[in-house]
Design a protein around this nucleic acid. Sequence first.
DNA 1: ATCATTTCTTGATTTCAATCAAGATTTTTT
DNA 2: AAAAAATCTTGATTGAAATCAAGAAATGAT
Lengths: 199, 199
Amino acid sequence: MQTTTVMEKHPLLKELQSKHDFSEADFEKLLPLYEERSYKKNEMVFKAGDVVKYVFFILQGCFRQFYINANGTERTIYIMEEGRWTGESLSFLNELPTNMNLQALEDCTVLAMTKSNMEFALRNIPEYAMYHMKNHHRMIAWLKEQLGAAVTEKPDELYRRLVKEKPHLLQRLPQYEIAKYLGVTPETLSRIRKRNTKL
Amino acid sequence: MQTTTVMEKHPLLKELQSKHDFSEADFEKLLPLYEERSYKKNEMVFKAGDVVKYVFFILQGCFRQFYINANGTERTIYIMEEGRWTGESLSFLNELPTNMNLQALEDCTVLAMTKSNMEFALRNIPEYAMYHMKNHHRMIAWLKEQLGAAVTEKPDELYRRLVKEKPHLLQRLPQYEIAKYLGVTPETLSRIRKRNTKL
DNA sequence: ATCATTTCTTGATTTCAATCAAGATTTTTT
DNA sequence: AAAAAATCTTGATTGAAATCAAGAAATGAT
């Protein structure tokens, strides 16, 4: 309990209500289905080959999802921060090995939900199922845009987009992580920064 | 009605059953919610700025989805053929302008569903809602992989992947469409083909 | 069948990021 | 505070795709 008069809204409730009309009553039913977990900086949440056991809502910290390709190069697909979801639904739902890797980039705490709890939630909290669907639509549209950006834009443009859209990430993460995210070498990123700060 | 003894299964039913246990009875309820439409080769189904009015199941032909970036370059995100879905759910569901473009690459016929029919279907055919969710998961996983491939692989690798995964597209489409899809110039594609057929 | 248009190929040059290599700076450890 | 490790910067070289430019081949129209 808090000593202040106004109770701060739970970050998960905030997220749910931001996308869908979600009642506090439903939230009371939903929250116990999550389990709080934490991961240390650089800890792997899951690796390619693992079956993903949870879907995660990030309370604190940030994670990266990446593939490792044939020549062993890591490629970060995206970075997710607090207030967002992360996981790998195909492996999670079908209980099959994933080809994705998920790593904590800082000390992190998350809310983790198992598959059976997810099924329970979708069956028993219709508004959660609705939120879930809306979230998928958003995710799909976002991934399409990422795909469009990744293939159309030059490194300089990708960097400027990042500065514009997520400037805090540049403070938060070492440059080699940003480089893996933008798909360039750290040397190139260093040069991009030089070019783009001089303006 | 057909003169043959065995009725060929409807391509949409095939697709629904391939991902989920979907009854013929439900299909009888679902099918009337779609309207058959056709598009001529090169016709734009929707353009950036439009509100997307339908979601499409492709009966015949193929489409490409693409963005047009700041300098006016087109970038094909993906190509969808018969038996697959296409559209843009975020614009479709929220009735907001899309930033995507959808174009028929051949003369095409599709089954098109409006938003109100979609809502009806999701509310009244629970198995359709289930299929819908599963399809989203697949779509998300597929987009992630595409994103991974797009940013990790070199043009030669992308080409060989295409030859392996969708060789028929190479017959079906002119080379400049393939080039826009792989994210290279037609000249580069021509050279890639030369390099990779000699082996 | 011929002409016109579209598409594809090939060559030369330019551009830009990767790689290799070394040094500078920052952070962590002791 | 000093030493060690990690991270970032800068320079030189290499490599691969874009661009520019001209032909060749295929397709479509009359």
